[in-house]
């Protein structure tokens, strides 16, 4: 009824949930490893998708993508279901918990009572694990929160049936089978290959390193096109996407570097160590962008040419990542 669950706080919710679930089921996996195998790194600037009227910039793959790919690449059995009926969704959850199975869920963050108030926005692609129930309260392991928490049933229902974009519709999932003797190496290579592909080889101007360059051009034009006030809103939104909770710093670049470092040991190839260091350096440039951007948001920037400077930093990111992913893909090319 109330099993001990190996809660670990992680930077990102989705990779954290899967790493913690797999660790519980006897396959110790780090968050960074889950993130990398799931091909979590991405860049996309999608101005036609608006969130609160601001263009969407994303540094990660689509929600659910990491989970699907990790389980597929490691041959792990999962079941997942969504619901129309709220009471049925809770009854099924209770059933699994009674059997002692921890359950992952997609939720919104707005209604979660334990979430830091300043971070409560209508964002619906959060992931957490329920591992037990006491009376009317659920025992929750939320990977971005330091300790396991307790959540009342009424609040959890709200979070599971949050409305709006990416509505979770009560989605829950659990692991049914973990094969013995898993070889991480092929899964790692596949994860890296995929990230390289989306970052440099997809001929679409809004994603990958092309997308970063496109964004740089847009940033440069924001003040003239939108006026200073709105340009600053756009910029602040961009920084939030890059740095606010769950990215591990620098829009997931540091998690990915940690993954490459771990992979070097698994694959026995020191080239990946060097690549990891380079990725860390690229992450530092992204942080530089956030720092300069935030200074501008606060109105500390003097000259009006500042958006050009910001664009210059972004172009440097694009250029560095372009070279980086081309080289990385040559390391994992199929023989």
């Amino acid at each position: 009824m109330n099993p001990a669950f190996p809660h670990r706080q992680t930077a990102h919710c989705e990779s954290g949930v899967i790493a913690n679930l797999l660790t519980y089921h006897g396959l110790p996996l780090s968050e960074a490893m889950a993130f990398g195998i799931g091909g979590g790194l991405f860049f996309g600037y999608l101005p036609f998708i608006r969130i609160n009227g601001l263009p969407l910039t994303t540094f990660r793959t689509t929600p659910g993508g990491i989970f699907n790919r990790v389980t597929k690449r490691l041959g792990i059995g999962v079941t997942s279901s969504t619901f129309k009926d709220q009471s049925r969704a809770m009854a099924e959850l209770d059933l699994l918990l009674r059997m002692g199975i921890p359950v992952g869920m997609q939720t919104g963050v707005y209604w979660l009572p334990y979430f830091p108030p300043a971070l409560r926005f209508h964002f619906n692609a959060h992931n957490l694990i329920a591992y037990g129930k006491e009376g009317d309260n659920y025992l929750i392991s939320d990977p971005v929160i330091g300790e396991p928490v307790v959540c009342a049933a009424a609040d959890l229902v709200r979070a599971r049936f949050a409305q709006g974009a990416l509505a979770p519709k009560g989605k829950m999932y659990c692991i049914t089978a973990v094969p013995k003797n898993i070889d991480l190496a092929p899964a790692i290579r596949e994860g890296i290959r995929e990230v390289c592909r989306v970052m440099v080889s997809v001929p679409f101007p809004l994603i990958g390193t092309w997308g970063i360059r496109y964004l740089a051009n847009q940033v440069e034009r924001w003040p003239a096109r939108l006026g200073e006030k709105r340009a600053i809103l756009y910029l602040g939104n961009l920084i939030r996407m890059q740095e606010e909770i769950g990215t591990g710093g620098a829009g997931f670049r540091f998690i990915f570097a940690a993954f490459l470092q771990e992979s070097a040991a698994v694959l026995g190839n020191s080239n990946f160590l060097e690549m990891s260091q380079r990725m860390t350096g690229i992450g530092d440039v992204w942080r530089e962008f956030a720092l300069a951007g935030a200074r501008h948001c606060k109105g500390r920037a003097e000259q009006s040419g500042d958006f050009t400077d910001l664009a210059r930093i972004l172009r440097r990111c694009a250029e560095l990542e372009n070279g980086f992913f081309r080289e990385l893909s040559s390391l994992v090319r199929k023989p």
Binding site: G236, I239, R240, E244, A290, A294, K298
Partner: peptide
């Protein structure tokens, strides 16, 4: 981190 704080308080 200060830049994240600035961006967040701007949203509020």
């Amino acid at each position: 981190w200060e830049p994240a704080n600035v961006a967040n308080s701007q949203a509020w």
